[in-house]
Nucleic acid binder design. Structure first.
Lengths: 305, 305
DNA sequence: TCAATAGTGTCTATTAGACAGTATACC
DNA sequence: GGTATACTGTCTAATAGACACTATTGA
């Protein structure tokens, strides 16, 4: 029997059912996407011998309307009724950076009831990583309303509370978001509850100076994910230009992981992921460094194929 | 200046703006949660000496109405306008299993335009892991419309396609979903595209006999996540009863990872996560096995505290 | 006694951390 | 020459895989 001929308790076939379906019996939330667009820039150097320091950047836009007018928010917007979540995310990415086809992944979907004072908004967050050399100079530079901010997170407080069923770890994460003129301050309390086997994580915003909505939470979450994933995937290469030195690559790992790495071990770790070239840095004031490129085939050893 | 006194381009304060805000200028999608509720049951034994085999179970509900009437779907439902995503997921979990406070995590949010023939539906999927001994016998057993299915996935085809920019790996994953009476068949093609540095993953349903909507995709995704997370977290313990033997624990790892493990290495790996007790299995037809319980403090070595 | 599982000891291969030591440009 | 970075060699500690070996029960 053809399955579309099945009838339901009201005796309707699927075709009849769909014709009569009232999509508005439930009040619907709005759905948005929020983009976390990260890149890495070089800082200026004072000492001709020193390497330029790298810094992790996040793109934020200044809100022109209520709510949170004149505060800074993650770029994003409403998902249209006829586009998929991924399409909406790609559209936002393109409109902010003018680049297609860069690394992007869905992070988490934020669904608290009172996230937005206008109306109920559920927001899917996506993280994108961009090589600075692909960036249109225009994007976020002359446009007053979209700017790249330095971003640095640090755990400033950490405590453990034992109770009968298990224990709880509370961390206060301070995130410094700044550029030459503007400094935004964010503190997020991350509470991990271990009750027997059940683990829950909660995030509460303690301070959110200049950051709109609950975006402080989302930024904290994204930084944690980035830290995790850089350890066991190759996503860091999405932040690198076509040619890079291993020292530069190491610097990118270091600013994201927020700790110093030993060069010997680092080089061993990334050896298979890169291909050496014949090019070297020059005018460096010290020994030149070999340029490498990403080896797209490095996973071959890991695959079953 | 108080920030709520700022005015926008129309000269409105935040209060005035919110009063006039029309939440319906954009057509809104519906939002649902879909629950992947996993558990592990013992199979029956024929040989008195043999240990009962474990099998991974997934709870599915039979659809009573169009669309996909009489097919099997993940339990779930619409998110009410005044409840958060997590609350909706907990509510569904409670209504299906009658248990609170079990392990639950958000997996992924599915946002394709044509996921549901009725209307645009975006669905956040959550995975929950339940110890069988906590399960109400009622839930999913006498209720004809909610049943536990054995679930087993296997890669039945794997190929690699090289192109100039990189390569693509296509896997066909066959998922067998069955119980004593019913066998549902699912095949999902997972396409991983490596183009330079950019990685994309696509999932296409090749076959979905008896499974409603795009739930075949979601199930495949969840099984992969479960496989990954069991290796580097302690989520497996959420599937274990209060007291268990290390052999049982190993079996659970084996059915989820779908490969055999060596006892010596496995015991080393979990040694810190368990606490031994004075109790032993009996009437086993072979050497008795010590019971262990979960050690909620095992992470202490790993924490900074 | 023996079938089947429980549990341990140890050898090996691999990997990450530590750190000393060598190399090489430019001012 | 001196400074700052580039790069390598090797010792060590920690960990995972392999596998042989011993232990213990009920029928």
């Amino acid at each position: 029997m053809d399955e579309c001929m099945l009838t339901n308790k009201d005796g309707l076939t699927e075709e009849e059912f769909l014709k009569n379906y009232d999509a508005d019996i439930f009040k619907r939330p709005s759905v948005t996407v929020d983009m976390l667009i990260f890149s890495v820039f070089d800082e200026e150097v004072k000492n001709y011998r020193k390497l330029p320091q790298k810094s992790l950047k996040l793109l934020l836009v200044k809100r022109k309307d209520h709510p949170y007018i004149k505060q800074w928010a993650l770029p994003g917007g409403f998902v249209a009724i006829n586009e998929s979540l991924d399409e909406a995310a790609k559209r936002e990415l393109k409109s902010e950076t003018n680049i297609d086809n860069i690394y992007m992944e869905q992070l988490y979907t934020w669904g608290d009831v009172d996230r937005d004072p206008r109306t109920r908004v559920i927001s899917a967050s996506y993280m994108a990583l961009v090589d600075r050399t692909l960036l249109d100079i225009k994007a976020g530079d002359d446009a007053e309303d979209a700017l790249w901010f330095d971003i640095k997170s640090r755990v400033i407080e950490e405590k453990k509370i034992n109770c009968e069923k298990g224990y709880t770890i509370e961390k206060v994460v301070d995130i410094n978001i700044s550029n030459k003129e503007i400094t935004l301050g964010v503190k997020v309390k991350v509470i991990e509850i271990f009750e027997g086997r059940v683990v829950k994580v909660e995030r509460d915003i303690i301070e959110s100076k200049g950051i709109a909505f609950d975006h402080a939470k989302i930024i904290e979450y994204a930084l944690e994910r980035l830290k995790n994933k850089i350890e066991y995937t190759d996503i860091a290469f999405n932040l690198m230009p076509e040619l890079f030195t291993l020292s530069e690559l190491q610097q990118v790992y270091e600013i994201i992981l927020d700790k110093e790495l030993l060069a010997a071990a680092f080089r061993r770790k990334v050896a298979e992921m890169v291909i050496e070239t014949d090019h070297f840095t020059k005018d460096a004031g010290h020994r030149p460094s070999k340029f490498y490129r990403f080896n797209p085939l490095w996973r071959n050893g890991k695959d079953n194929l």
